[in-house]
Amino acid sequence: MKERATAVEAVRRTNLGEVLRLVHRHGPRSRSLLTAETGLNRSTVADLVTALAERGLVTEQEPDANKRVGRPSPVVTASADVVAIGVNPEVDAIEVGAVSLGGGLRARARIELTDVPAVADAVATIADLVTRWRSEELVGCRIVGVGVAVPGLVRASDGLVRLAPHLGWRDEDIATPLAEALGLPVTVDNDASLGARAEHLFGAAREHTDVIYLNGGASGIGGGVILDGTLIRGAGGYAGEWGQTRPGIANEAHRRTHDGVLEDEVNRARLMAAATLVAGDDDALAAALSGAPGPTADEEVVRQRRVLAATISNAVNALNPSMIVLGGFLGILRDRDPEGFDADVRERSLAVAAEGLEIASAALGLDRLLIGAAEAAFAELLADPLTSRPQ
């Protein structure tokens, strides 16, 4: 009898997670739509929604009766007061966002840096900001946890940063000191893997199951691969390091180093220098490149676009994705002439592999890594809303 009760409770927890994931990832849903999407009966859905509402995870409201025929079904919405903290430490800045269930940002900050941060410095900066938010922007909110998007190799089993070369982090544990400083669970993962997941769930790749995501940041180029809806991680969690591939540029005029990897050739610092910009985020870089005088900036953009297109065509031929998403400064390169860039990729790819291929810049823009990191922090709650009460 006890085993049966345990099994029934496990099913209920699974169903609660399914309802919460639907309203979190797909937006407000009526009870009737949730009934159709889950395949559960109306009374079961009503019970699940009530349980989630009692825990403050969703809210319900009556729809506009003037826009419905027949008896209206209450609309269930993920609570904006339940948040996760997303963090992206980089060589030039630390970005932090408070992301609500449903994907909206409650607060966001970019802390510019003069020196590359050590782990202890990053922890102190993040902890100070989140502590202040708790008494200001996030008053009345419940924080589920923290997700950290690191530009480097992160061990999947425990979140240890094996190597973030541009940050100078090797075998560093940022999760433990940050968890101790904030009293919250902390999840750490590769920034591009988290960006891939964010764009797949909430951004440009929502309708696709085979996706290549390339992220261009101050530390270089990383990537994430989603095949048949599953993020490919590799044996240790290190898959997707596109920036370390060698583009094999035959023409010396198009190559900046003798035998450089992709992130040496397609490089944010080179674009910053060409635009005579000392600091700033990607929006500032895009604006500076557009207004930069003389041919230098345009020449560098054209050169990097050519190398990037060649690299992407290799990925198209190897993995046959239906969607490629470019984040960070890579999106800036494409956006200079999207049609021309996409045509260049297709011209360099096998025709059959490029059939139906879509290419897009990251729809989530500057927030993509913060939303991806927050999604990692939400994972436990979304899997089992009864597992713990958000803080």
Rank of each mutant, 00 (worst) to 15 (best):
E9L: 15
L16F: 07
H24T: 13
R25T: 10
E37M: 14
A53I: 07
Q61D: 10
K67T: 14
G70M: 08
A80E: 11
I85N: 02
V91K: 13
I94Y: 12
V99H: 02
L101H: 06
R106K: 10
A109H: 15
I111T: 15
E112V: 13
E112R: 15
D121V: 12
G140C: 08
I143S: 02
G145Q: 07
V150C: 03
L153E: 03
L163T: 13
L163C: 13
H166D: 12
L184F: 08
D191P: 01
G195V: 00
A198N: 00
H200K: 12
F202A: 13
G203H: 05
A204W: 06
G224Q: 02
L231Y: 03
I249A: 05
H254A: 15
L262F: 02
D264S: 05
D264T: 06
T276P: 11
L277W: 02
A279D: 14
A288W: 04
L289E: 04
A297L: 06
V302F: 14
R306Y: 10
L319Y: 07
I324N: 00
R336N: 13
E339V: 12
E339C: 11
G340M: 04
F341S: 07
A343I: 01
V345S: 09
R348F: 08
G356T: 04
L357P: 02
L370W: 03
A377V: 07
S388R: 13
